[in-house]
Amino acid sequence: MITWIIISIFTLITGMIIIINIKNRNSRIKKEQKEDIMKFLYKKSKENQKVNFESLQLFSKIKTNKLTKILEEMLKERKIKYDEDNIKLTLDGEKEAKEIIQKHRRIEKYLFEETSIDFEEIHDVAEKQEHNEEIKINTKNTYECIDPHGDIITGQETSSYPLLKIIKDIKNIEQIYKITHIEDEPKEIYKKIVCLDLSPFDYIKIKNISSNSITLLTDKGKIIELDYITAGNIFVNKEENEEITKMFEEIEKNITRITTLNELKLKEKGKIIALSFYIRGEERRRLMELGFIKGSLIEPIYNNMLGKDPRVYKIKNTMIALREEQARKIYVIRLN
């Protein structure tokens, strides 16, 4: 008798726990879906595109009756409104959408600076964690204001356009642009851009436009050939600044002498001109502390017993060993 009572109480409790868990999970999924819908609506409204039920369903991939339910709830919460067939965010909804986007950017910034997660994975992690209520972000703390893709975290979207558009106008050759934003989706293309070491705030000069690719010169003295798909993921703004024009003239004059640190031969002296944007966080701090800054003289002095990786460099009267992939991200100009 007693055993039966214990067993029944036990099953009751486990059943309740399971039910509560399922309910929690359902409400969490619903919250994520709502937030994704708000982000989508916000993005489309910024691009001046209209959103109706069908396009929303195409984006969110939720079943019709479920989506109707969610939208009804959001209507009740006064987060969205209907404008004839089109769905729009209310002021409240817009504010919340902005907050979510900000949170996403801050998480990306954190992951970029404080972890060793691969660059192309950062977006996915941030996409998951932005719905996590346990991550509280102090909005007063504005000291980090630009995310790894070049967006101002708290600010409005800047008016920039993809590199792809420039190609249509052949007059743009020899024109200088500044990269303002790099799109991190899809992953493969972003990875390619990172490998080419193109980063936000780089200046680029268009050298040649052909039928399937576009050649450009970066402010680190690198000549890059981009295909059209990749070029569509890079957003730029025209830059008309005397200093920058002069800088590019200087670079073009010395283009044969500019290289990366790993390309220097032993005993060949060089001067650092830039560190890549993708040397990040603690590593960047340490390198700069040790003197890896613009203008420092550097000289590879010897290899190790197994080859060129890592190699010892002499900088500021000290000897520092760096691995090849780090040296590849440091740009130097050969001195004669």
């Binding site: 404080e114 972890t115 060793s116 997660i117 691969d118 994975e121 966080g281 603690e282 590593e283 340490r286 390198l287 040790l290 890592p310 010892v312 000290t318 000897m319 520092i320 060993a321 760096l322 691995r323 780090q326």
Partner: peptide
């Protein structure tokens, strides 16, 4: 991957 990683080796004289 959530922990930062870098390689710098100082070679003392």
């Amino acid at each position: 991957k959530s922990i930062p990683s870098f390689y710098i080796l100082e070679i003392p004289p």
